[in-house]
Design a protein around this nucleic acid. Sequence first.
DNA 1: TGTAACTCCCCTCCG
DNA 2: GGGAGTTACA
Length: 675
Amino acid sequence: MSATWLDDLNPQQKEAVTHGDGPLLVVAGAGTGKTKTLAYRVAYLLQQGVQAERVLLLTFTRRASQEMITRAQHICQHVSANKVWGGTFHAVANRLLHIYGKAIGLPEGFTVMDEADAEDMVNLVRTELGFTSRETPFPRKGTILNIYSRVVNSRDPLEEVLQKEYPWCMEAEEGLRRIFDEYTKRKHARAVLDYDDLLLFWNIMLESAELADHIGGRFDHILVDEYQDTNLIQAEILQRMRQKNKNIMVVGDDAQSIYSFRAATIKNILDFPKQFPVTRIVTLEENYRSVQPILDVGNAVMEPAKYRYTKELWSKRQSKQKPILVQVQDEAEQCRVVCDTILEHLEQGIPLHEQAVLFRAAYHSDQLEIELARRKIPFHKYGGLKFLEAAHVKDLLAFLRILENPSDEMSWFRALELLEGIGPKSAQRILAHLAQNRYDLNCLPGFKVPPASEDQYKQLVSVLAALCGPERKLPVASQIERVRGFYEPLLPKLYDNPTPRRRDLEQLELMAQRYRSRTSFITDLALDPPASTADLAGPPHKDEDFLILSTIHSAKGCEWRAVYIIHAADGMIPSDMALDDEDGLEEERRLFYVAVTRAKDWLRIYFPLRYYHKRFTFGDAHGYAQLTRFLPPPMLGLLEQQTLEAKGDDDAAEEVRTEVDIRKRISGMWGRREP
DNA sequence: TGTAACTCCCCTCCG
DNA sequence: GGGAGTTACA
């Protein structure tokens, strides 16, 4: 237990790791060894004799917490490190609520519904209350849920949220109020929680001084990663968890706060020293990831930022190669050029998994994915549409969820409407019948259903009955197999591409083999959904090499030797949806900063001159893009500019030349766009 | 009452 | 291109 392993740390990291009792804020710039510092801190605490199960490590993803715990275990060879309470706020909330939830009246055996389920429930409530968009437009289910979430997480009054964020929904205020009210009641009655509830109820539990004492008292130390992306409720939870014992370490980078759409507030990290007096602040500025020219760009991007802890990243890694700004004519050329460069880098010895293409929104990579497939370049995509959002996966899970929580109305609706001849009305009748019988499955056989659906209905009932009765103890995977036996024959009628869907279901069954109980399988899927389809297949084979495609959000915490940022044009980065308010724009700036600082050695930023999208809101549909406003002229000096010669197409060449002129004209108007 | 076909509108980021 | 809402028809 000597200082030997501490010698791997630089002085600031060591200061943080060996900090004694009391609050500690680590402001860690990108690539400055944040994960390392947290892992060492855990190892240090264990070595100091703190019991592993008395350490709470809150991270942004479960993968992150597992990584840190494994690393800590390696560092200090402490066998019990895996007993550390690690996970996301949501997952930890779920665990605690299952232990203490009864005290605040939570139904036992509650289940967690994902966003889509929550939306469906909201929609159900909306139609029941008669709010349709027939005469006056009414927000759709997704928007309604977003507004709800914003209200509960920021605690701003509905009126204010509408005024600030959703001015076009102002007229719906009364309706929304009633929907929220009914939605809340219904969740409780059906024993389901949505994501926000997990945090809310955790916080509510802590309102009782006694419970706060008890729950907070379980932990000698609390460590929080990515603190810049926590919201008001989360900050309050931490406050209440640390009323007596003030051992709390939060780590974050205000410059990487990119989750305000989840009501995260950069204020948390900026105000932490106020909330916890006598906080020690340690700043990490030495970057171990990138070569200096890349950091220069990152620093320059952040330089004009409004609110922040000032820090300047620096690196011992010098390089003569500047990052490159590549002008391409349009998206098609961007695809070609990116693929070319990836292959060149591969030939130069950079494996595909050390290369990543980053973009603002999941659909921005659609065309590129086609080109990659055409050239047979394998890739994994992170972020965007989740496996779990696929209709057939949801269908299958609905059956499992019914078994788990028979009062889960939404899952019943979903499952019943799959049957031929059963639509909303029949489903509703069956549900009313179920509700009357307190959701006892035994009431189902013999219930009159439309003749067309009798056969399938009988089958469904018998499968459910079996899985509740004699087959209750089967492993989850076998239960899925059983459900598949019933569900798969329905696929061809339900969807026009049943084959890939069938494969997904097999994958799901495979995945389930890793779980001991149905409960843990279902909750895990909701709370820690696979970030990419690759996650489902388990750890990749050693000889497999995949290019990484990722949204910038999902790239948080990752690093690659070569990074390609595509669609770095105004309207994409920054997103056109963020242009209305200054804070939104500031967040886009930080997002761009996150993207830039993922690169270790090579960074290329792609800037298409033309967009054919209709929805592109700058200029006309076929107009010219303006260079992203985060790359103002003074910054261009930090980049090597590369304009591709148009090949054999005079018109295109002409356009490129015209564009250069336009660039000159607009170069004086960086900053906020006039409305 | 269920469903297929048709139109219209809008489209981020995630646990 | 897809989801939500509407209409026509079985």
